[in-house]
Design a protein around this nucleic acid. Structure first.
Lengths: 344, 344
DNA sequence: GCGAATTTTGGTACCGGTTCCATTTTTATA
DNA sequence: TATAAAAATGGAACCGGTACCAAAATTCGC
C-alpha cells in the first residue's frame, strides 16, 4: 500500500493564496457576498479559479450534518422500468444540488440489507427504495433517525411512509375490462411470486376482482412463476395451454421480465401470437413495439414517477412534515397487434 | 426550513455508554483488537449493538483522506450494455468495502462535466468512465490530483490511462469475415456518428479494412445515423435499400440502439428479415433472442468487463503504479436466424 | 474631526472520526 | 516484593470545512 501524495487544495490553501482568512473563503463559498467587500471577493474568486479549488463535500457535511447524498435502492437495474425511473430521479436530484447513490439489490433482501447499512454510514439525506420487502427493521431504524424515506412502487405494512407508484387497481382493471370486451374466453395472469411485494399482490387481486365483477370464469387462471427457472415457467405455461385448448385465450403478464420468458417459450413451442394465444403485458419495454409487430402493453409513466419520488423526498428533506401520502399514477393502455378482437 | 433534530449516534456516545475513551472505540472499529483488552472489547461491542451505532464514512474519510467512494460515469443507462457492466462493477466494489456513485451522462458532455465536478467534490477514490470524449481537461485535472481513472470501452488520445473494453478489431473482422463467407454481396455498416467516440471509429475502420482485404465492394457502405432523429435513420436506410436492390444484402449495426431503430423502420416498410434483408448487430440485448426468431449478434462479455474495470481500479487505489495498460476482451459471435447462408 | 453605527474581517470552537504520544495498568522477571 | 518491560488506555491535535462572536476598519451624522 503505497502512500499516495495528497495534492488536493484545501480552503486554507485558498485563503493563503488570496491573503484572507478561511472564514472569508467560507463566506464566499456559501454565497454570502453581502458580508464581503468587493475587493476580498475578487481576490478569493481569483485564487479559487487559479488553484482549481473544489470544497470537500465530506468536510462540509460534517459540520452541517448533511451529505447532499440521496440513496436509491432499486430491485433490478436490468429492468427498463428501473432505468426510466432512475433518469427521472436523477434529473431532479442534480438540478437541486444533490447526488444520487444508486444501489441494485437484485431483489435480494441480503444485498438490500448491506446497502441499507452502507447508506446509513454515508449519512444520506434521504432514501428512495424499491424494496424487496425483507428489511422492515432497517426501514424503521432509518425512520427513527429522521431520514426521509419514499417507497417506490412497493408498499410496506405498518409503517407510515410516503409512496409513489402506479395505480395498480385502475391499471389492471382497465386491461382486464379491455380483454373481456375483446371477447377472450380464458384470461390468464402470470406473475412472479407475490410474497412480500405489494405490487404483484395488488395486480393479482385486482385481476381476480375485475373478472368476478364480470362473472368471467378465469379468476382462477392465476400463475406464479419463478423467472430464474425456465422449467418452472414452462410447466405453468403448458398447464394453461392444455387447460384452455381450443378457447380464445390470452395471457396478461405482471411485468416485462415474465413477458420475455413466456415469449421465449412460445417460440420454442412454435406457437404463433396472437393466432394460438394472445398476449398483453405490464410495462412497455422498447422491444414491445417490434416483437409480433407490436405487443399490447400497460404503460406506466416511469420517468414521471421517478421525478415525483425525488421531488417528494426533497420536500421532506426541506422540512415538510405533513402526514405520509401516496401518489398513484394512471397507466396507459397501448393497444397493438397481440390482442385482436375475437368474433363470437 | 425546519431544524431537524439529530438523533444520530456518534463515537463519543458509544464511548460514554461503554465507559471507555473514544480512542478505544476507534481501535475497535479499525479491528485493532490486539491493542484492546478482552473486557474493553466486549463492553464496546455491547454498546455498539445496543445503540445501533454506525461510524460516519464522512468523518472517517476526512482524516484518512479516503471516501470509500468510486465514481462511474456511464454514457447511457438505458443501454443493456451499461447495466450489465454496472452489475459486474458493483459486485466487486461492494465486496471490497467501497461504494459506487453511478452517474448517467446521457452521452451529453455538459452533463458529464457536471458529474466530474460533483465527483471531485466528493473526493472519490477512483473513477471509471464511459466518456463522451468532450471533457479532456477534466480527466487531466483528476489525473493531476492522483485520482485513478479507468476508461471503459472508449479511449481518449494523449493521456496515459488504463482502458478496459472490447477488442473491436477482432470483433468486427470476425463478423465481417463471417458475412463474406455467407456470400453477402452488399454489407452495410450503420453506426452513430463516430465524432470523439473511439469505439465507433475502430469498428468502422475495421469494417472497411476487413472488406478491403477481401476485395469486397462494400467498404463504402458506411452510414452514420442520428438515432434521435428517425427521419435521418430512415433516409440513410432507404438509400442503402435502393442502392442494393436485388442483391444479397445485410446490415451490421454498431450497437443495439441502432439495431432497434432499423428494425422499427423495416417493419413500417413491411420488409421481412432475413428474406429482404439480413441483419447482424453488436451487443446482445435480451430481446435479440425473440425478434425474428433470433437475431445474429456480436456479444461482449459485459459483466466480465465491469468486473475487470473495478478490479483494475482497486489495484490502482491500492498503490499499483505500473504503466497504463489496455485490456481488450474477445467478442463472441452468436449465429442465429437473421444471417442465412446465401447460395451463389 | 470625533464618537457611534455599520460593515468587514479573522480567531476559535466544533462536527465525528483517526492517530500520535504520554500515562496508567498489568504482567514478567529477578 | 521490587523493578523493568509490555500491554492497555486516554488526552489532545488534526482532517477541511462552518458558525459564532469579538475585533478591526470603514462609513455616517453632526
Amino acid at each position: 500500500m503505497v502512500k499516495r501524495e495528497n495534492s488536493k487544495v484545501t480552503i486554507y490553501d485558498v485563503a493563503r493564496e488570496a491573503g484572507v482568512s478561511k472564514t472569508s473563503v467560507s463566506r464566499y463559498l456559501g454565497g454570502r457576498y453581502d458580508e464581503l467587500s468587493d475587493k476580498t471577493r475578487k481576490k478569493i474568486e481569483l485564487a479559487i479559479n487559479k488553484m482549481e479549488y473544489r470544497p470537500s463535500t465530506m468536510a462540509r457535511g460534517l459540520k452541517s450534518n448533511k451529505s447532499y447524498l440521496i440513496g436509491i435502492i432499486v430491485a433490478d437495474i436490468n429492468n427498463p422500468y428501473t432505468t426510466a425511473i432512475l433518469r427521472g430521479a436523477e434529473d431532479i436530484c442534480s438540478q437541486n444540488g444533490y447526488n444520487l447513490m444508486i444501489c441494485n439489490s437484485d431483489n435480494n433482501p441480503v444485498k438490500e440489507r448491506g446497502y441499507f447499512e452502507m447508506l446509513l454510514s454515508h449519512r444520506i439525506d434521504g432514501l428512495i427504495i424499491h424494496t424487496t420487502g425483507g428489511n422492515h427493521d432497517m426501514l424503521k431504524q432509518m425512520q427513527d433517525q429522521k431520514t426521509p424515506i419514499i417507497l417506490l412502487d412497493r408498499k410496506v405494512p405498518d409503517l407510515e411512509i410516503d409512496t409513489v407508484g402506479l395505480d395498480n387497481f385502475q391499471a389492471t382493471s382497465q386491461a382486464v375490462n379491455y380483454l373481456v370486451n375483446q371477447n377472450y374466453e380464458r384470461i390468464a395472469f402470470f406473475s412472479e411470486p407475490a410474497s412480500k411485494v405489494s405490487t404483484r399482490y395488488e395486480r393479482r387481486l385486482s385481476f381476480q376482482q375485475t373478472l368476478l365483477s364480470h362473472g368471467h370464469p378465469s379468476s382462477k387462471d392465476v400463475y406464479e412463476v419463478n423467472v430464474d427457472d425456465l422449467n418452472d415457467v414452462d410447466s405453468k405455461l403448458q398447464h394453461f395451454l392444455d387447460d384452455s385448448e381450443g378457447k380464445a385465450r390470452v395471457i396478461l403478464t405482471a411485468n416485462s421480465v415474465v413477458l420475455l420468458k413466456l415469449i421465449l417459450l412460445l417460440q420454442e413451442k412454435k406457437l404463433s401470437v396472437p393466432k394460438d394465444l394472445a398476449m398483453i403485458g405490464f410495462d412497455n419495454p422498447e422491444w414491445s413495439t417490434i416483437v409480433y409487430s407490436g405487443i399490447t402493453t400497460i404503460e406506466q409513466p416511469t420517468y414521471q414517477i421517478g421525478v415525483a419520488a425525488m421531488e417528494m423526498i426533497l420536500r421532506r428533506i426541506d422540512g415538510n412534515e405533513s402526514p405520509a401520502q401516496t401518489m398513484a399514477y394512471q397507466a396507459k393502455l397501448n393497444i397493438r397487434q397481440t390482442t385482436p378482437y375475437i368474433q363470437k
